[in-house]
Amino acid sequence: MSVNGGNKETLLDIRGMEVHFETRRGIARAVNEVDLTLYKGERFGLVGESGSGKTTLILALLRMIKTPGFIAAGSATLDDGTDLLKLNREEIRRVRLKRVAMVPQGAMNSLNPVMRIGDQLMLTIREHAEDGEIPDKHTQLKQVEELFYRVGLKPAVARLYPHELSGGMKQRACIAQAISLNPQLILADEPTSALDVVVQRQIMQTLRKLQNELDATVLLVGHDMGLMAQFAERVGIMYGGKLVEVGPVEDIFHNPQHPYTQLLISSIPNFEIKGEFRGIPGVGLSLLDPPTGCLFHPRCPKAIDRCKSVEPQLKEVAADQLVSCLLHEEDQHAPAS
């Protein structure tokens, strides 16, 4: 489903999400007033430097923030009105995998080393079955083999242990697990880091094919801009726990509006949109001692006086393109470039 297809049904509506970490030196706002709407069947890419809060956001959606972190405010409502942030322990457990699944970052170490791959998948499926509805072993095994087929693994892999698999195979096994209950939303946190380039491509193709088959929404987190450009339909840029720009992938890459996004895009080697960004000049942000006003103003080449005192809000500047920058609040028609 294309973003511009008009008929956009909301799958997940995140409003005012706040994740805080309590430290000895005060509270760090790792996710800061994030508003984000994900549509059914879309592929959304979330980009940011490490520490920008993108992984924290994903963990917060699954309610897996560990002390000293906690979700301080906000809501994350699914299409049927379920607020992920209000569910109790057992309810959120049942949502995980069944409705919101995760493809992990470090597939190298994401499978239990002492359990056969097939057994792990079967265990995971069983844990979500209602009492008395647990299918017999043979049916479970058939189901696992079917999942393996869909992600491109041989049935024999079910009998292997994680250490007997290559990195790519492990990630395929993790994907098979993630789609086992036909989730509506798949959270993929840099699913191809630590894999070589050829395998990266294969994994991303598999993920795209499955997304299509399931008509699921994928939220892809990462900092590989090339991968984002190929995979995502819409992209969101995070800085210091805040979402600073959201828009269709072509606009973000060819007509970025936020100064931070502009710096990001220009730091990518020019000949093709490929490779990871290497960050931008200036001192990194301290979440414990954030600047007043716009978080980006100390590093921003276009900062004006007001940026030091006024906090910008995410506003629509063009069709489907949202930016959080005072320059656009002043004059909606003048692009900042």
């Binding site: 457990r93 699944a101 995760m102 170490n109 994401s110 499978l111 239990n112 265990l123 995971t124």
Partner: peptide
């Protein structure tokens, strides 16, 4: 990582403790 993923996959706390944590 496998503990984190097990939790993300909605396994029961008890299952994660015994079969993923304790076992390893």
């Amino acid at each position: 990582d496998y503990i984190t993923l097990a939790e993300a996959n909605g396994l029961r706390n008890r299952t994660i403790f015994f079969r993923f944590g304790l076992r390893n």
